[in-house]
């Protein structure tokens, strides 16, 4: 039974649409999603004084960046990108970030909670929860306040996690940057209410209606550059608590850990110590997409942080985590 849909889709030939002369061509689902996201980006830029795009370097950010290029073409992207650097990101991510944002011609702001890092914040010293709180959540709120940004685009999708299924496209945050699930504005048709008072802000999620599969299909169709870590390759890893942890960057080995070489790839990109790799042979986009279908595990599963407590993502959001 569970095989039903996929098997059927393999056997059927690709649908070539034969239109009646009187009807206009209909957009495909990816074209519809693209048009909707561009609409949202333009609404926000027309409505806010100082928007910013949270740029996490991951595949969703790559898609969001491409959509921003499309929305304002031939003009430049009319807002800066903000990367909250925890200091624990993969070196390949940082390299990709610097090259790609330069190529696109976007203005990049990098924000680090240097104070916390100097005080020794690390997942090993203070635990993942606290570490995220300081290096991600606090750092993000500080960066938003510093730039006086009234709107921040994020690449979150509703299909990523259960608590996001009810997230609005315009998500209202009070003056403390907090999210109240009971105080969100209804969104009918394609009207987004971005009116705010001083100090309040809106997080905007133009990719809300995209699924992980849509993201990959779009990257494939549009040939969008992504960090090479997404592609399987022999890399040095250690096995830690059931996860495969890459030995890149600032990560101390525990006493009895021995690095080994495995063919692995990342399904989502976070911090080196807290994001596990998966064993995989998928070194091309079609193979990644094919893997998704044979490998039904949701993508955040390899993030240590989400599993501390049931509903933990929702609690982080209430506190201001993206």
């Amino acid at each position: 039974m569970t095989q039903h849909v996929y098997e059927e889709s393999c056997d059927a030939a690709p649908v070539i649409s034969m239109e009646e002369p009187s009807t206009v061509r209909r957009l495909s689902h990816l074209e519809t999603l693209e048009a909707e996201s561009i609409h949202i980006l333009r609404e926000a830029v027309a409505g806010f004084a100082a928007p910013v795009m949270l740029y996490s370097i991951g595949k969703d950010s790559s898609v969001l960046l491409r959509l921003a290029q499309k929305a304002f073409y031939p003009g430049k992207i009319p807002f800066p990108l903000l990367h909250v650097d925890t200091g624990y990101k993969f070196p390949e991510m940082i390299e990709f970030r610097d090259n790609y944002t330069r190529e696109v011609g976007a203005r990049l702001i990098v924000h680090k909670n240097q104070q916390a890092l100097d005080d020794g914040a690390s997942p090993f010293a203070i635990g993942t929860q606290k570490c995220c709180g300081l290096l991600k959540t606090r750092s993000l709120l500080d960066a938003l306040a510093e730039g006086s940004f009234d709107a921040a685009f994020g690449g979150a999708r509703r299909d990523e996690e259960k608590s996001r299924a009810k997230e609005r496209i315009y998500s209202f945050r009070d003056a403390a940057g907090q999210w109240d699930p009971r105080n969100q504005r209804p969104e009918l048709w394609n009207y987004y209410n971005g009116r705010i008072d001083k100090g309040e802000s809106i997080r905007i999620f133009p990719l809300s209606n995209w699924t992980e599969l849509d993201i990959w299909l779009y990257i494939y169709k549009e040939n969008i550059p992504i960090v090479p870590l997404y592609f399987a390759k022999e890399r040095e890893v250690v096995v830690r608590g059931g996860s495969l942890i890459l030995t890149q960057g600032p990560i101390p080995l525990l006493p009895n850990e021995k690095p080994e070489r495995r063919k692995v790839r990342m399904r989502s990109l976070g911090c080196v110590p807290c994001t596990g790799a998966i064993a995989s042979d998928a070194d091309t986009l079609p193979k990644i997409i094919e893997e998704m279908f044979s490998f039904h595990r949701s993508e955040r599963e390899n993030r240590a942080i989400d599993h501390d407590q049931e509903g933990s993502m929702e609690m982080k959001k209430r506190e201001g985590y993206f």
Binding site: S9, C10, P14, I16, S28, T32, P286, K287
Partner: peptide, 22 residues
């Protein structure tokens, strides 16, 4: 990994179809 993409024709079809859905 794009250049040396080796994909079965079945999967190729599958992808083409996915791009075309409404």
């Amino acid at each position: 990994g794009f250049a040396e993409a080796h994909i079965s024709s079945t999967f190729d079809k599958f992808l083409a179809q996915h791009l075309d859905r409404d």
